[in-house]
Design a protein around this nucleic acid. Structure first.
Length: 602
DNA sequence: GTTACACCTG
DNA sequence: CAGGTGTAAC
């Protein structure tokens, strides 16, 4: 509404407290540093096809596709985290009531356990990061090889494609491919979905190279073949790039390690059709923004007349570079295990699943195989989800019970399931090449949704049901689900206000007299408490606007208590009213159905 | 009557 | 975090 009313409160020290570690390119560098020779997958590529005659194009194409699949398949059996069943069977398959009880007691710990930061967390991130990088490299290498082969196949007509001949293709292509995700000639989403600021940067750089490369290649080909070649290359490149992008997105959103922070530049990456154009240049991808300069709406000014504050709670398109800066934190990710049984038709997704699942919070990233393979065998399903096997029951199974605590109302969801599945299947068919289907409606809320809701609390304390619907596109909202989610936020608020009151009283008892002295900083205990509650893994950086809201809330409590208003039974109401008007826009990235979840149920 | 909320409880 | 309850607004 009034984005400009975002009076950035100068006085708020919170805004100045921006010293955040910028680990931006730790990953990028690693990506390039990683060896480029990763032979094992490419051994499978029959080099003989290189010499295929022109008229063998079709077969050649098929072969290449097959190879891509093979590669992906090969990757899908890569080492996988294995977490010795720390998670008991999650759902009771018999009694809904029991199921609910169990859910209450188990789902939470499950979520919180791995999320818990701390010394023990190191293992995961250290493992996950390199592994993911390695996988990314493999993908990129494969892409490069594919293109080389294509070029070489075209070569016979052109220059000799001897050992040195490959240089023809390798030169320019090599450059292009080293940054695999930056090269998407056809530009399907190349512009909007760079997985990171670096990715974008790289992409720009290579677009230049690309033109040259292609023109060079074209010279060697007959016009028709050249066109075909281009198309092929685009397709192949696209598939791989998309996979890389997707993985990258997931990885970055749920960084296994000191990857990088990124803005919402990749928001559109999610193949859920809800992608949004990446803001033209500028801010979008440069994330390590001085948050202080962000258009945080509704920046409360402590001491400012409330009337002057932006009360808007509307959803303007937030240009809000959320700064889902992933704080590199040690995370104990589930150790890898190596699932052998892979549903044949979900390999691609599975690769990604594994990539993602290895992230620090494996339980967050679920296996996606269910979507792509509705009939996937339970056994393999379990095998693929070592870190939460029990929780990741095959959809088919889950659907037959009410997975959710709501015994009566929940039943109404059951009829929806078939259609949901149908939709998923359809999507799967359409987006066959897509790494993972992210647009599937869920008929219930899972821990990932809870996590997301908690993070959203940083931006909105009083979300409307419509807002929730907008930000949980993968949730099939019904009365039951809506109530649950509303209840979540109610609980969040409860905790929030309790803390506020507690700290306000403490400040008073500590002799503080000036409410403006009460500023919530990132290193303040209050913030830590809150952050621990809403952002346990600390994998998201709370926005500064939250600090400001927190500061204001604290001050309001302080004032009220100081003034003795707490004798009035409803003394908190005015505070609630104030705070309820200070919701900020939630970053668009949160609208992604796969952010930051993709949990076991997916 | 429904919805959303705060509050209390387990 | 969920359930229950009372309240208030629509």
């Amino acid at each position: 509404m009034d984005p400009n009313s975002s009076l950035h409160s100068p006085p708020s020290q919170a805004c100045l407290h921006l010293a955040q570690p910028c680990i931006e390119d730790g990953r990028s560098l690693s990506l390039q540093e990683q060896g480029r020779d990763s032979p094992f997958l490419w051994r499978q590529v029959p080099s003989s096809s290189i010499a295929d005659p022109d008229w063998f194009w079709d077969e050649h194409i098929q072969a290449k596709r097959a190879r891509v699949e093979t590669i992906v398949r090969g990757m899908s059996v890569s080492p996988n985290p294995l977490v010795p069943g720390s998670t008991p069977a999650r759902d009771s398959l018999c009694c809904p009531e029991k199921s609910r009880e169990r859910k209450r007691k188990q789902s939470l710990p499950v979520q919180q356990g791995p999320l818990k930061p701390g010394p023990a967390g190191d293992r995961g991130s250290r493992k996950g990061g390199p592994w993911v990088r390695e996988q990314l490299h493999l993908l990129k290498q494969q892409l490069r090889h594919l293109q080389e082969h294509i070029l070489q196949a075209a070569g016979p007509r052109a220059t000799a494609q001897g050992p040195g001949g490959s240089e023809t293709g390798r030169g320019p292509l090599g450059v292009k491919q080293r940054n695999g995700w930056g090269s998407r000639p056809w530009g399907v989403d190349s512009d909007q979905h760079q997985g990171s600021s670096r990715g974008r940067f790289v992409a720009e750089k290579h677009r230049v190279c690309e033109g040259k490369t292609q023109s060079e290649e074209s010279r060697f080909l007959p016009s028709g073949a050249g066109a075909l070649l281009e198309i092929l290359k685009k397709e192949l490149t696209g598939a791989v790039s998309q996979a890389v992008d997707s993985v990258l997105q997931k990885v970055l959103l749920n960084p296994p390690g000191p990857l990088t922070q990124l803005g919402r530049s990749f928001q559109g990456l999610v193949p859920d059709g809800k992608s949004e154009p990446c803001p033209p240049e500028g801010g979008a991808c440069k994330d390590p923004l001085p948050l202080a300069a962000l258009p945080t709406r509704a920046q409360p000014q402590a001491g400012l007349p409330l009337g002057t504050l932006s009360l808007a709670k509307p959803l303007d398109p937030p240009n809000y570079p959320v700064s889902p800066r992933m704080i590199p934190k040690p995370y104990q990710g589930p150790p890898a295990n190596c699932p052998l049984a892979v549903p044949p038709h979900s390999q691609e997704g599975q690769v990604l699943t594994q990539l993602l699942g290895r992230g620090p919070r494996g339980h967050w990233h679920g296996s996606l195989s269910q979507d792509s393979s509705p009939q996937s065998q339970p056994s393999s399903e379990v095998a693929l989800r070592p870190w939460g096997a029990a929780k990741m029951r095959p959809l088919a199974l889950r659907q037959q019970q009410c997975p959710w605590p709501f015994t009566s109302t929940c039943l109404e969801r059951l009829p929806l399931i078939p259609s949901v599945k149908t939709e998923q299947d359809g999507l799967q068919a359409v987006t066959n090449a897509l790494p993972f289907p992210s647009s599937h409606i869920q008929e219930g809320l899972n821990p990932g949704h809870l996590k997301k809701a908690k993070l959203m609390f940083f931006f909105t304390r009083y979300p409307s049901s419509n807002l929730l619907k907008a930000y949980f596109p993968d949730v099939q909202f019904n009365r039951c689900v809506t109530s649950q989610m509303i209840k979540w936020f109610s609980n969040f608020r409860e905790f929030y206000y309790i803390q506020m009151e507690k700290f306000a009283r403490q400040a008073i008892s500590d002799g503080v007299t000036n409410p403006k002295m009460l500023v919530v900083l990132r290193d303040s205990e209050l913030f830590r408490t809150l952050n621990m509650h809403y952002n346990k893994g600390n994998d998201f950086e709370a926005p500064d606007c939250f600090l400001e809201i927190a500061s204001l809330t604290l001050q309001e409590f302080f004032r009220a208590v100081s003034a003795g208003k707490d004798s009035d039974p409803s003394w908190k109401k005015p505070i609630y009213k104030i705070i309820s008007k200070l919701d900020s826009d939630i970053p668009e990235i949160f609208k992604s159905s796969s952010y930051p979840q993709e949990l076991f149920r997916n």
